[in-house]
Simulated assay, not measured.
Amino acid sequence: MLIIRDICKSYAGPSGPVPVLKAVSLSLSAGRSLALTGDSGSGKSTLLHLAAALDQFDSGEITVGNVALADLDDDGRAGLRRSQVSLVFQQFNLIPALSVEQNISLHARLAGRADEAWIGVLTDRLGLTEFRMRYPEQLSGGQQQRVAIARALALRPKLLLADEPTGNLDEASSASVMELMLDLVRETEAALLLVTHSHDIAARLDQRAHLSGGQIIGCST
């Protein structure tokens, strides 16, 4: 579902290009999950953004399903995110003017793939049924993160990308949210690439890879 092969990425610095990723390679099958760990500045979020087609790499190859990202223009990359790739971030990124129900269905509606029955299942499984008509400001941090996860999965994406999705939650809420997310990923046969600093969270996933200095220095299953 996701193939990352020999990816290199640099950003412009005062004295010239600053390498961030150096020949990074990973692969992830449908229904499997991979935790990407590493120190701050190691390139984890950069790799996630490249896989989401939010940024472009200098060299190498990234394929989502049968789509090579290098072959896509701006419209193609936006279309990929709209139809096949969903993202969950630590900041939730909910729309304040929309209700919980509207936030959850937004991504799927924009793609023309809203499935009310599936949205109902997600709302129920994530414990959000009684909050459907509330607004984000009326929810706790854990509830907002559940809404963000439901919104991402409402699309039934082929690839789910998550950047420290439980970083703002306490330990108990984090464990509960992660368990639900992993269950739903397995049920939908999505591939999950998750960036985390937590070794406990990483241990819950099928595969683990560690980034250091822009390179993969350890990979396990």
Rank of each mutant, 00 (worst) to 15 (best):
A114V: 08
I3M: 03
R5N: 13
A175K: 10
S29M: 03
G127W: 07
V177N: 04
E187P: 03
S198L: 13
Q90K: 10
A152Y: 01
S173V: 12
L205Q: 09
R151V: 10
T129R: 13
V64C: 15
S220Q: 15
Q56V: 14
E189G: 04
F92T: 13
G60F: 11
A191S: 06
L106S: 05
D115V: 11
Q138K: 08
L80I: 08
M133F: 00
D200C: 02
Q90I: 12
G142C: 11
S10K: 04
L50A: 12
G218T: 05
L205R: 01
L161F: 07
L87Q: 14
I216L: 15
T188R: 04
H199N: 10
R77P: 03
N93C: 07
D73Y: 08
L94D: 01
L211Q: 03
L94V: 09
R156F: 07
L126P: 01
A111I: 05
L161I: 14
T129A: 15
E116P: 03
R156Q: 15
A68Q: 06
P136I: 13
L50S: 05
R208A: 13
Y135H: 14
G141S: 13
A175H: 08
Q102T: 10
V147E: 06
I4Q: 04
L47H: 08
M181V: 14
D74R: 10
A202I: 09
S40R: 02
L184D: 04
A175T: 12
I216F: 10
V67C: 13
S40C: 08
L2Q: 05
V185H: 01
S86M: 06
S45H: 02
R134N: 00
R109I: 05
S140H: 00
T37W: 03
V85I: 15
R204P: 06
A114D: 14
T166I: 10
G60M: 13
S59G: 10
E116K: 15
Q90E: 05
A52Y: 03
R82Y: 02
L153M: 15
R81L: 10
L50D: 04
F89Y: 09
V88F: 05
G43R: 09
G65N: 05
F57D: 01
R186D: 01
Q144S: 11
L69G: 07
A202G: 07
P14E: 12
A30N: 07
G120K: 03
I217E: 12
G31V: 09
L184E: 08
H107A: 15
F131V: 00
L28I: 11
D75E: 12
L182K: 02
L110W: 00
C8H: 09
A51N: 06
D206T: 14
Q90M: 10
F57N: 04
S99H: 04
E137P: 01
D6H: 07
V67I: 15
P157A: 11
A190G: 07
Q207E: 15
L180M: 13
P136R: 12
I217Q: 08
